[in-house]
Simulated assay, not measured.
Amino acid sequence: MNRVERLAVARRRATREHAVVHRVAALLLDYPGEELVGMLPTVRAALTEVRPELAAPLLRAVDHLATTPVGELESEYVATFDLKRRCSLFLTYFAYGDTRKRGVALVEFKQAYRRAGFEVAADELPDHLAVVLEFCATTDDDGRAAGIALLLAHRAGLELLRLALVDAGSPWADVLVAVSATLPPLAGEDREAVARLAAEGPPDEDVGLEPFAASPEMPLTGARR
Rank of each mutant, 00 (worst) to 15 (best):
E49R: 14
G188D: 14
R85K: 13
A56G: 13
T139N: 00
L165W: 04
A195H: 12
A61M: 02
N2R: 11
A173C: 04
A181W: 05
G38E: 06
R23D: 13
S88P: 02
V104F: 10
E74C: 09
V70F: 10
A149T: 03
R85T: 13
V179L: 07
R100F: 05
A213E: 15
D127K: 01
L165R: 02
V62L: 08
T139Q: 01
E217N: 14
E108I: 04
G222N: 14
V104P: 08
R11F: 02
R85F: 05
N2E: 14
L197P: 11
T182I: 04
R115N: 09
D127T: 03
V166E: 14
S215I: 13
E124S: 00
A193I: 10
D98Y: 10
E49M: 06
A214T: 13
E17K: 06
L83T: 03
G147K: 00
A19N: 00
R144F: 07
A66L: 10
A130E: 03
S180C: 11
L209T: 09
P185C: 03
V78F: 01
L129I: 15
F212M: 14
V43C: 09
P203F: 07
Y77S: 02
D98M: 08
P57S: 06
G33R: 08
F135L: 04
F135K: 02
L65N: 12
A14S: 12
L54C: 07
F109W: 02
L29R: 13
L152D: 14
V70T: 14
E74R: 15
Y96M: 03
A79F: 01
A26F: 02
F94Y: 15
L160V: 10
T182C: 08
A187G: 07
A156T: 03
L197S: 05
A156C: 06
P202S: 11
A46D: 12
R224W: 06
V50L: 07
L220Y: 10
F90E: 12
A25R: 00
F135D: 06
P52K: 02
R23E: 12
L152K: 05
P41W: 00
R6D: 13
A55K: 05
A214K: 10
P216C: 11
M1G: 14
R225P: 15
A56I: 00
R60Y: 06
L29N: 09
P211C: 12
A149I: 00
L65R: 10
A46V: 00
E200H: 10
L73M: 01
K84E: 12
L150K: 01
T67G: 10
Y113M: 09
A164R: 08
G208R: 09
G117Y: 03
V166A: 12
L158D: 03
A214F: 02
R6N: 14
G117W: 01
R51E: 15
V9Q: 13
E35T: 14
R196T: 12
R13K: 10
A8K: 15
Q111K: 15
E17G: 04
D30Y: 08
E134I: 03
T92A: 05
H22R: 06
H18M: 08
L59A: 09
A25F: 07
L220I: 15
L209Q: 13
D204N: 11
T99M: 03
R44V: 03
L165T: 08
A187L: 14
G188R: 11
A193M: 09
L129F: 04
F81N: 02
R86A: 15
A198H: 14
V175P: 06
D82Y: 00
R191F: 11
T42F: 07
E119M: 07
C87E: 09
L160W: 05
A122N: 01
A130Q: 03
S215T: 08
